[in-house]
């Protein structure tokens, strides 16, 4: 089996598993909606004020949604033993990790990016900033998924990984928050957004190259322990 077929097979398997349990797909979206509702209630419903905070609100909620789903990335595979099969497989673990992350990104980051225009209108974000918001979300959430995968790989063997993973991973999420937020703010202000998106893209390149290596190491440690 060549690498591409293997990669596609793993992605397909992860997506199938998710489609069979649709609530797992809906959970991050519902979470996204509910946390967004909290902000107008907490900060006050004044449209101008909401518009100022909207880029920050979006990114913080995406960060949290990613964090919550990252914990479950390898959990069921670890529990039913299919993770050990991947470790024993002749295909590199780098590839399986990257495939699992791709599926995770499609189910959280891409979905959130697709529904984000609706929430952007609810928060009174300038409509001209919506394409930038979606582009930044697509790039940024891929980085978040990759970093979250490292945390998930390191904590999958632990019984109480949920709270721990946020402590490990949130500091690493900050650059994405800063530049993702910067892109949307620049777009609202009519400034060029390309530099921000380019930096997010550079982060994504670095994360694709290195994060699956750390994930592979982490998965081996977790299975050995």
């Amino acid at each position: 089996m060549n690498a591409t077929t293997f990669f596609m097979l793993i992605v397909r398997r992860q997506l199938l598993l998710a489609v069979r349990r649709p609530i797992e797909i809906a959970n991050p979206l519902l979470f996204f909606l509910m946390v967004i509702v909290l902000f107008p209630l907490g900060l006050g419903p004044a449209p101008a004020q909401l518009a100022t905070f909207a880029p920050g609100i979006f990114w913080i909620v995406v960060l949290l949604a990613n964090l919550l789903t990252a914990d479950t990335l390898f959990r069921s595979d670890f529990d039913d033993g299919s993770l050990e099969q991947l470790l024993l497989s002749r295909q590199p673990l780098y590839l399986s990790a990257l495939a699992a992350i791709t599926a995770h990104w499609l189910l959280t980051g891409v979905l959130l990016a697709l529904v984000s225009p609706v929430f952007a209108l609810m928060l009174n974000l300038a409509p001209s900033a919506i394409p930038t918001l979606m582009g930044a979300l697509l790039l940024g959430s891929a980085v978040l998924s990759l970093l979250g995968g490292v945390g998930a790989a390191l904590t999958v063997g632990l019984k109480r990984g949920g709270m721990l993973i946020s402590l490990l991973i949130l500091p690493l999420y900050l650059p994405v928050l800063i530049f993702g937020h910067g892109a949307v703010v620049a777009s609202v202000g009519g400034l060029p957004v390309a530099p921000y998106l380019a930096i997010l893209g550079a982060m994504l390149c670095l994360a694709i190259a290195l994060a699956p290596l750390a994930m592979a190491l982490g998965l081996r440690i977790s299975v050995d322990a």
Partner: peptide
């Protein structure tokens, strides 16, 4: 926190080593 979460201290050391290296790559970016 990661070190304390593992019961097997050998695995804990390795997991922390991976996390420390990931952090090292990230510190300049942060």
């Amino acid at each position: 926190a990661l070190y304390e979460a593992y019961d097997n201290k050998e695995a804990a050391g390795k997991a922390c080593a991976v996390l420390a290296l990931v952090g090292t790559v990230n510190i300049p970016i942060i």
